[in-house]
Design a protein around this nucleic acid. Sequence first.
DNA 1: TTAGTTGCAAACGCTTTGCACCCAG
DNA 2: CTGGGTGCAAAGCGTTTGCAACTAA
Lengths: 147, 147
Amino acid sequence: MAKHEWHAEALRGKGYRLTPQRVMVLAALGKREGHMSVEELYEQVRRQYAYIDLATVYRSLQLLTKLHLVAEIRAGTTSRYELVHPEQRHHHMVCEECSAAFDLPPHYLDDLKARLVQEVGFEPHMEHFSLSGLCSKCRHAQGGDVS
Amino acid sequence: MAKHEWHAEALRGKGYRLTPQRVMVLAALGKREGHMSVEELYEQVRRQYAYIDLATVYRSLQLLTKLHLVAEIRAGTTSRYELVHPEQRHHHMVCEECSAAFDLPPHYLDDLKARLVQEVGFEPHMEHFSLSGLCSKCRHAQGGDVS
DNA sequence: TTAGTTGCAAACGCTTTGCACCCAG
DNA sequence: CTGGGTGCAAAGCGTTTGCAACTAA
């Protein structure tokens, strides 16, 4: 079963309609390794179905995010989205220079989260978490200057 | 010398004009412990000078942020601002429930940053960093359900 | 059949910009 | 005096919403 079909089934299982638009959104997300901006997603889906509306893409992403079938990653001002694969939780690092995205193994933040809950009493919500900075490639290219 | 005067001097020292509007923005920021939204700042300044324009507030914050005299804290979609005190670096935790803001001692993130640079080669930029989640008060009020 | 979903267009909230006037240096 | 800064109004941009038509179940 293709990558996105699991998600489509989950959608129906929860009582929502499986419309062509939603399938296309899921398929587009499934075609990419990393996360996509709404605009990228929109362009991608439009190649299959020219009449889809941006609002529909937004509404689909909203629904899918609510159901935890896709994850919303806030990078700077705008959001990016990717399929959720429950067995491979991770967070993100986005390079400010080249926009490349990297996965951040969960244990880094789990440690931080545990310490914060214990020592400060604050429970951070890290589902939509991402760090921005410089990837190793761009770091070396720039000679390591820190802003 | 009052809290914000140091910042005003720094502004002039770098060759920018010290206008009443900028002084008022700095003063408003200095009056508060935590960070303020642009709107709060605007309302505050308007009490002294009814004709200030929102655009001026935005432009002042942009300049001050560029000069590292104020820090921009991204909380969810919008930004909040506070005076920078170089000797007391810290990051932020913002409660999603009650919007209260807490300071996060730098060592928590310094650890994380060091590990990331060493182990993954990624250098996160944490100047404008904040965590959102639930503060201890709201956590207990809600009975600890995690979304 | 019929409630959930879509396309369309308009509105929204926050932020930025163009421009003529103004004032800090 | 003069160029940087301001007020004003309008535009920009990503996102959301109201509504009539449509369609998955």
